[in-house]
C-alpha cells in the first residue's frame, strides 16, 4: 500500500465517528419527522397519552411518562451507585493491602464485563422476588430497575474514579498525614479535591450510560404506560418502551418511537460530551 493511500484510508476511518453521528441524527430525525410535525417538541415531551388511533391511523403519542421514567431510574441508580463506587475506589487506592488490590480490581472489572441481558435475567428472577418479599408490591418496578442499573454502573464509576485518585502524588498525601490528618481526612481534603474533575467526569459519563442502558431494565421496570405512584411501582422508560414496543409499532407510533430514540440520543450525546470535553479532557496530559 502506498503512503498516500494509507493516509487517506486512515483519515477516512478517523472521520467515521463524525459520519456515524451525523447519520444517526439524520436517520432518527427522518423517521421521527412525522411525529415531530404532528406533536411538536413541547407537546410531545409533556404529553402523557400513548394511544394508537382507529385502524392504526393517527393517534396521540406523548413521551412524558417514559422520559420521567428514564430520569427516575437513572437518579435512583446514581444515588445507590455513587457511595458504593466511591467506597470501592477508596478501598482500592487507600485502604486495601497490596496483595488484595489486584484480585479485587479484577473482580470489579469482571462485574463490568457481564453482558447486560444477564443482569436483566438475574434481576428478574432473583432480585425482583427479594424486593417483593421485603418491600411488597410486584417486585419489578422503579426500585428493582434502579438497583440493577446501579450494580451495572458501579464498576464503571469505581474504575475511572480509582484512576483519577491514583494520580494524587504520594508526597501530597504524606504531607497531610505529616500534619496529623487521619486517613479519612487525607481522602476528603487531599485525594478527592485533587481528583475532583476526573471524579465528576466519571459520574457524568456513568449518568449517560445509565440513561441509555436497556437490557438490564427491560424486564424490570414493568413496561406500563403510567407514572409510578411510589418507589416500588412499575412504569416505563425510553429504552424500555423502545425494546418492548418497537417491533410491533407502525406509522405514527413508530415515528413517535423514533422521536423518543432521538431524544434519548440527544440527551446522552449532551451529557457524554459535557463529561468528555469539559471534565475528562487531556487525560493523557494530566
Amino acid at each position: 500500500m502506498s503512503g498516500k493511500l494509507f493516509k487517506n484510508f486512515s483519515f477516512f476511518s478517523a472521520t467515521i465517528s463524525l459520519i456515524l453521528l451525523i447519520a444517526i441524527f439524520t436517520t432518527l430525525y427522518y423517521y421521527a419527522s412525522d411525529a415531530i410535525n404532528t406533536f411538536g417538541f413541547w407537546d410531545f415531551i409533556t404529553g402523557t397519552q400513548w394511544e394508537a388511533g382507529e385502524d392504526d391511523e393517527g393517534g396521540i403519542f406523548g413521551g412524558a411518562i417514559p422520559i420521567v421514567g428514564s430520569l427516575l431510574t437513572t437518579a435512583i441508580a446514581m444515588i445507590i451507585a455513587l457511595p458504593l463506587a466511591l467506597g470501592i475506589a477508596i478501598f482500592l487506592t487507600e485502604i486495601a493491602h497490596e496483595k488484595l488490590i489486584k484480585p479485587v480490581s479484577i473482580a470489579i472489572e469482571l462485574l463490568a464485563a457481564i453482558p447486560s441481558i444477564i443482569y436483566g435475567m438475574w434481576g428478574l428472577f432473583y432480585l425482583a422476588p427479594l424486593v417483593q418479599k421485603y418491600f411488597g408490591g410486584a417486585g419489578i418496578g422503579l426500585f428493582s430497575a434502579g438497583v440493577v442499573l446501579a450494580i451495572m454502573i458501579i464498576p464503571f464509576i469505581a474504575s475511572i474514579t480509582k484512576d483519577a485518585m491514583n494520580t494524587t502524588p504520594n508526597v501530597l498525601k504524606e504531607s497531610a498525614y505529616a500534619m496529623g490528618a487521619t486517613k479519612f481526612e487525607v481522602i476528603k481534603d487531599v485525594v478527592i479535591p485533587y481528583a475532583k474533575t476526573g471524579i465528576i467526569g466519571s459520574i457524568i459519563l456513568a449518568l449517560g450510560r445509565a440513561l441509555g442502558e436497556t437490557m438490564a431494565v427491560a424486564f424490570l421496570l414493568g413496561s406500563v404506560m403510567k407514572f409510578p405512584k411510589n418507589l416500588f411501582d412499575t412504569t416505563t422508560s425510553i429504552p424500555v418502551i423502545l425494546a418492548n414496543t418497537f417491533s410491533e409499532a407502525e406509522d405514527l407510533e413508530l415515528s413517535a418511537l423514533f422521536y423518543l430514540a432521538l431524544i434519548l440520543f440527544a440527551l446522552s450525546f449532551i451529557i457524554i460530551s459535557l463529561a468528555k470535553f469539559y471534565f475528562l479532557r487531556n487525560k493523557e496530559e494530566r
Binding site: 502524588p169 508526597v171 504524606e174 504531607s175 497531610a176 500534619m179 481534603d189 487531599v190 475532583k196
Partner: peptide
C-alpha cells in the same frame, strides 16, 4: 505528627 512537623522537597500545597 503535630509536635514534629515536616516539610518536603517539593512544595506540597493542598488543593484549597
Amino acid at each position: 505528627r503535630q509536635r514534629v512537623g515536616m516539610i518536603f522537597q517539593k512544595p506540597t500545597p493542598f488543593p484549597m
